[in-house]
């Protein structure tokens, strides 16, 4: 958004405002931290699996898996991606 000319300035909505973005990110960081900490206080009473007792398991799993999906998944495009009118040309 940095290349926007002054006329575009008024088109920058509230969500694109750097202050909002910064605020949102800080809110996110703090929530994450709080959830992480909370993980040490509330544990499942009757865990079925050993990993459930690790306080940061869900946080780590969520973070890693999400990154994995996005970083690995995008390469699927190389395999299956085709031009938009792929089928129209063939039907």
């Amino acid at each position: 958004m940095s290349h926007h000319s002054p006329e575009d300035k008024k088109n920058i909505g509230w969500a694109d405002h750097p202050a909002f973005v910064r605020g949102f990110l800080w809110f996110l960081y703090l929530s994450c931290a709080a959830a992480l900490v909370a993980g040490f206080f509330w544990q499942k009473e009757h865990p079925h699996f050993a990993v459930e007792t690790v306080p940061v398991f869900f946080a780590g799993f969520g973070f890693v898996m999400f990154s994995l999906i996005v970083l690995v998944g995008q390469h699927l495009r190389k395999l299956v991606g085709r031009p938009e009118n792929y089928y129209q040309e063939r039907e």
Binding site: L28, Y29, G39, F58, F61
Partner: peptide, 20 residues
């Protein structure tokens, strides 16, 4: 604990998104 688990999972996933 259910809330915490779920929030950990989802918030850190969102965090990953934000960082990506």
């Amino acid at each position: 604990y259910h809330i915490v688990e779920q929030l950990q999972l989802l918030l850190f996933a969102v965090l990953a998104f934000a960082l990506l």
